[in-house]
């Protein structure tokens, strides 16, 4: 059972604000031009969302991105071919399109409600901090070496793919090391789409091919805790959490990873 929460409340509005942005864009173009132009802009926005969603799917191979992408492309189709849209189609055709759109909306809604596209970085940090006491001024911007582990390399690659696919975070392979970067809901877009995103400024757990493990917690992530936690203990805890996940993955107990993370779920929007 999870104790009291150590992280500051998540006030991220990145998720709910997206439909609002679409509505604002649509409203503005409608006011400035006409309904047809507004629908064309709306189609462009949905196609852009679709492109971003497909990129995310290709990167992390989480198939639930396809449901979101399916809804986005169907929305673009609907706004293109309805009777006031840029290319009107017959009523029968539109009925079919609406039916598919509704089906895609149900699938996307299911994905949203069941949090299939939620990034779990915040929960990872919450879990890592559960048993950590307060110790002011213990932070240091230095990675902590945590000894060596023995594993099969293909297991590490498999775990890295699992880590991304289940949206625990992203991984990066560099100089004989796999670097696991937990990604929170409020920073997934930056992590995924920003070409200048530098993982070195973010918290990570690095596992080398020779088995050595080191962990770094960024100042930003550390200050996201309500109190100054004992940094050495916190870093060790984040390491152990990842090593437990890796152990469970190797033992075919992936469900345990998901279960432990879901114990500390955040707010409904994230």
């Amino acid at each position: 059972m999870v104790g009291h929460r150590k992280l500051k409340p998540d006030r991220s509005i990145f998720g709910p604000i997206q439909p609002v942005i679409v509505l604002i864009i649509f409203g503005l173009t409608l006011v400035i031009w006409d309904i047809k132009t507004a629908l064309i802009v709306l189609v462009a926005v949905y196609l852009a969302y679709f492109a971003f969603t497909m990129y995310a799917f290709l990167r992390v191979k989480n198939y639930y991105f396809l449901t979101a992408g399916f809804f986005q492309i169907m929305a673009a189709v609907f706004f293109t071919f309805n009777k006031i849209g840029p290319i009107p189609l017959s009523e029968d055709m539109m009925r079919g399109i609406v039916l598919i759109l509704l089906a895609s909306a149900v699938m996307a809604g299911y994905t949203l409600i069941t949090k299939k596209l939620k990034w779990w970085g915040r929960e990872i940090f919450e879990l890592a901090a559960q048993d950590v006491e307060v110790d002011p001024e213990s932070f240091t911007e230095r990675p902590k070496p945590s000894g060596k582990i023995i594993y099969r390399r293909e297991d590490l690659f498999g775990f890295a793919r699992f880590y991304e696919k289940n949206l625990l975070g992203l991984y990066k392979r560099e100089n004989g090391t796999i670097i696991f970067i937990p990604v929170k809901m409020n920073e997934w877009a930056n992590a995924l789409y920003n070409p200048s995103y530098n993982y070195k400024n973010h918290s990570y757990v690095a596992i080398s091919f020779d088995g050595s493990v080191s962990t770094f917690i960024s100042k930003k992530d550390y200050l996201n805790y309500k109190e100054d936690l004992a940094f050495d203990h916190l870093t060790a805890s984040l390491t152990n959490l990842h090593l437990d996940f890796f152990d469970w993955y190797q033992g075919g107990k992936e469900e345990r990873i998901k279960d432990s993370i879901k114990e500390v779920e955040g707010n409904i929007f994230t």
Partner: peptide
């Protein structure tokens, strides 16, 4: 220095850190 204990960790002797690193 990579193996130097953190500010809140148990301090170690030079020899212990040499062994650990």
């Amino acid at each position: 220095l990579f193996n130097l204990p953190f500010p809140d960790a148990l301090p170690l002797s030079v020899d212990e850190i040499l062994t650990r690193s």
